[in-house]
Design a protein around this nucleic acid. Structure first.
Lengths: 296, 296
DNA sequence: GAGATTGCCTGACTAAAGTCAGGCATGTGG
DNA sequence: CCACATGCCTGACTTTAGTCAGGCAATCTC
């Protein structure tokens, strides 16, 4: 397959060679990990747990790095500012010297970016920037992770609220959740069902749920994808995971209902093998009902 | 500047995040540096000096890495095969076990490339591949280095031969170097002049030379750019460097002659501030003569 | 309010990466 | 043939990165 070769060439030249240069720019005099951490803390400060998640570091290692930066007088680590907050969490903030160092890093990053553009004639610069944006956008698809999540989790709530907002904007006459058939959290917790969350670098960007009705096909609900990642196949992956969940537990069919305004969703269901069926519920906002038989 | 921000976003998400994933794929069980080295040696083997240049490693460190791979029975390092070659250079080659390991790495690289494409729907995959190719092509411009080189260097010879071949393909009736006004190597060695070589990862991809005539404008010769990097501003950069070289040594003008078939070159000269002048030599292949006054 | 959990910290490690100073054999220019 | 350069190698280091086990205090759960 030729496109695999093309991706490999890209990885080699761009992620490896350019990435190494980027690192070298970033870490002048200071170990790379420290520079990255300092950068990640930023002028606004950051909670330790967040830093750990963003940089993917071991708790002990991060702690030690923070101690080093503190020793150099660049960072202070103290209890979270907000009263009433969790007293265990600590926030790292930059000192004046740290802010200066951060500005230096920021400047260097700018320099490096400019050095990539500089050798190109003007129009090619624009094309490079456009192509980079495209690559970045399309590559995030492979960074989106889909995993089960309690429906009560704040990130799940964010998704469901966004879902309701999107839908009410698109339906004729809006959408009032109170009129729609209710879904209770307990129905989306194993073994009754599951709620899946799609996230990108920890940020929620999509969701979907399935209810495993006893003695009836499983029912798919609340499939939603943030428009920041729309068109990248995330919805389809969520749907696949939900079907897989139901199939593994013995269900042989899934159903769902949807509104005629959601044309892309309908197209996705059809292309995923769903067939339109007679109404199987009395959902007031639904115009179409679909079913798909699951291979065991 | 917004495009700088876009490049930085790209560097962050793509070179950093994807690059780190790539490394993790590459280095399973084995230290990354070893895996990279093994990969770089490849089934065809490679000279030690070349490996050092490609990977940018310290001589001692590389030697040690080779010793480790040798100890693991993956690599043999021996004197260069070619008789009459430099007896000091050594070549690393893969053993059977090394070849197997290499194939394993190769397979993993493929897997990783596929894993980037897989989550995307088909048409987006094509767009990603196209955008990657574009980014890669445009970014190599910033990896091209231009530096003085003795005109007798093999890489310089390669360029001049390519130049003659390109030109003879384009001129009506071909190009016979014997009929053209000759340029001797000594004229392109400081202080009489200079030969500049443009190279990408050590491979020659362009050249240009200037002769500093006493009591006459400096003369630019042999500006050539390989079509692998054409359109990326390399020719313009070579020209700038040549002008700078002449200006720094007190020359106040540069001249050159060119053939009417070389339309892009002519356009480049014009856009770089060259004005057409009366013939200043009797070059049989020239149709246009240009001059540019240099700011001191 | 006891017991488990969570968030951060420290100490004690190990492995990998990289540097530096020489050393030996080969090659090159006078 | 001498002096010097070059290509590779070894030994002796340092730094960076990262892991793991445990510990303390705050918080949550029952």
């Amino acid at each position: 397959m030729d496109s695999v070769a093309a991706v490999r060439r890209f990885n080699r030249t761009v992620t490896q060679r350019v990435g190494a240069l980027d690192d070298r720019y970033m870490a002048r005099g200071r170990p790379l990990a420290q520079a990255r951490l300092l950068w990640e803390i930023g002028p606004g400060g950051a909670e330790v747990a967040e830093l750990r998640a963003r940089l993917g570091l071991d708790s002990g290692y991060l702690s030690r790095l923070l101690r080093t930066l503190e020793g150099d007088g660049l960072v202070t680590v103290g209890p979270a500012g907000r009263a009433g907050g969790d007293g265990r969490v600590r926030v790292a903030a930059l000192t004046d010297a740290g802010r200066a160092e951060w500005a230096e890093l920021d400047g260097r990053s700018d320099d490096f970016a400019r050095s990539l553009l500089a050798p190109l004639p003007g129009r090619r610069q624009e094309r490079l920037v456009a192509a980079m944006a495209e690559v970045e956008r399309l590559l995030v698809a492979s960074l989106v992770v889909i995993e089960p999540c309690p429906p009560g989790d704040p990130r799940a709530r964010v998704c469901v609220r966004s879902y309701a907002r999107d839908v009410s904007r698109r339906f004729d006459g809006g959408f009032d959740p109170a009129l729609s058939r209710p879904v209770h959290d307990e129905e989306l917790v194993p073994p009754a069902g599951v709620f899946l969350l799609a996230s990108l670098n920890g940020e929620p960007v999509g969701c979907g749920a399935v209810k495993l009705h006893p003695d009836a096909p499983a029912e798919i609900k609340r499939v939603w994808v943030s428009d920041t990642v729309r068109g990248l196949g995330v919805g389809r992956r969520v749907l696949d995971e939900l079907e897989k969940y139901a199939a593994e537990r013995g269900w042989t069919a899934v159903r769902l209902d949807t509104n005629r305004a959601l044309t892309e969703a309908i197209a996705m269901y059809r292309s995923a093998g769903y067939r339109e069926i007679e109404p199987f519920n009395t959902e007031p906002y639904a115009h179409h009902w679909f079913e798909k038989r699951l291979a065991q």
